[in-house]
Write a protein that binds this DNA or RNA. Structure first.
Lengths: 231, 231
DNA sequence: ACTTTTTATTACCTATGGGTAATATACGGC
DNA sequence: GCCGTATATTACCCATAGGTAATAAAAAGT
């Protein structure tokens, strides 16, 4: 709000700011430790005592930053969701064919799934949340599903994707990606980037329309019957 | 053991047999109720009291059939696993190209995922099991993964599947199928059969080699570069 | 009809772990 | 240097739910 930045030497706002930052850093540390432990042992088996212990504090100290265990769980989920929302906004802004957008979505989503917060989107059970938070989660899941379906439908409309049912296709792709959150491990042989690339290829090679020279016709309504028969 | 069947009128073994069957039926009823409740509410939130209540008995009665909650959980998992083992044995016995076997596997696995016992293969957490049972589960999961990879490798070897990494491809396919257990609901719009068919198509359309007239060459080592280019 | 075995019930124990109250300590502001 | 706020600790509460006697009811065997 003030014209002089925080670099101004004896600013009376500095201590206040630094204090707030220290607090946020501690809050983040709690979340990082919690999400890690929740993933490692499962939400119900993980105890707040152990979260605190790993941070060299005691359980009640956690309550300075969170209202309770469920609050922490929801925050972990929200951080993962935020990342998804961010890159979807980026993809939407960039534009391109449906197929191009879908491929970007697959790659980004796959890579998010290899992170702790990303995995929490699929490893945690919404039924452990309050009704209020649970509704937020369900709404977000529906939104992601709609995005997948939309890109697929866009691709069919613009001719970059061969006609097929967007709903089922979205389930196939999203399921495959979501499962990454269940098997990926950082110390494993595969890098997040390699997984992103591989999944992008494997999950789109079947749907891409032939790289026909023709510009996408405005209405590719009826496809040619068995134009090359993939099976 | 006896030559006369149980249809013989006053067989002394009859009561014994019928008694055992009645017991097994009750045991099955417990499992059906338990798996349903575990899926509905999640293992940790579901209580043995409620399982018993739904069966019109009381909690301690359950201990006539099972050693405890974990025992019930493991049995639910085992019943699902049994079905998977069964159809894999059938597919192995029938033979065919790698692609044909993979397609059968996908369809059967997808349909099992739409059942309660099938879903328990992916919805329950092995960490809730004793170390002994957990090892059994892990071994079975590895075995299923090996089967997917083997069919894919077979298909690449016999020319029915275009060359690609069996490991990643198996992850893509199995992940997509496993996720069915998370979203399918019996009262939904889709039938298990429709899902089996759709997933079989969607998950193999990208890998099938062109239906070339030639019989599969013994070594399709180097595929023709962009022989039609699906992407 | 009796005894024995199986199956179920009532009443209880107890470990676990989330959450809270009372209280001490560190720290920035003045 | 004193005060108020933020942050942490110790000690405790208590609801939940898995599991276990002790015992009653039901069924099978003789």
């Amino acid at each position: 709000m003030d014209a002089r930045g925080p670099s101004s030497d004896s600013s009376p706002w500095m201590p206040f700011e630094s204090r707030r930052r220290a607090r946020d850093e501690k809050r983040d540390a709690v979340l990082r430790t919690a999400v890690h432990l929740f993933l490692e042992q499962g939400y119900h088996r993980a105890t707040l005592n152990e979260v605190a212990e790993r941070l060299n504090i005691t359980k009640p100290a956690l309550y300075n930053y969170f209202r309770g265990k469920e609050d922490i769980l929801f925050e972990c989920w929200a951080l993962g969701q935020e990342r998804v929302d961010d890159f979807i906004a980026g993809i939407d802004a960039a534009g391109g064919t449906g197929l191009a957008k879908l491929r970007k979505l697959i790659r980004a989503y796959a890579e998010v799934m290899t992170t702790d917060y990303g995995a929490s989107l699929v490893r945690f059970d919404p039924r452990d949340l309050t009704e209020k938070n649970s509704r937020v989660v369900r709404a977000a899941k529906r939104s992601i599903d709609r995005t997948f379906r939309k890109y697929i439908a866009d691709g069919i409309a613009d001719g970059s994707i061969r006609p097929r049912d967007p709903k089922l296709t979205a389930f196939v792709i999203a399921g495959s990606l979501n499962w990454i959150g269940h098997w990926f491990q950082r110390d494993g042989a595969m890098s997040a980037e390699a997984i992103g690339s591989e999944f992008t290829e494997r999950l789109t090679e079947g749907l891409a329309a032939k790289p026909a020279r023709r510009r996408a016709a405005s209405t590719p309504a009826k496809r040619r019957k068995s134009s090359g028969g993939t099976r």
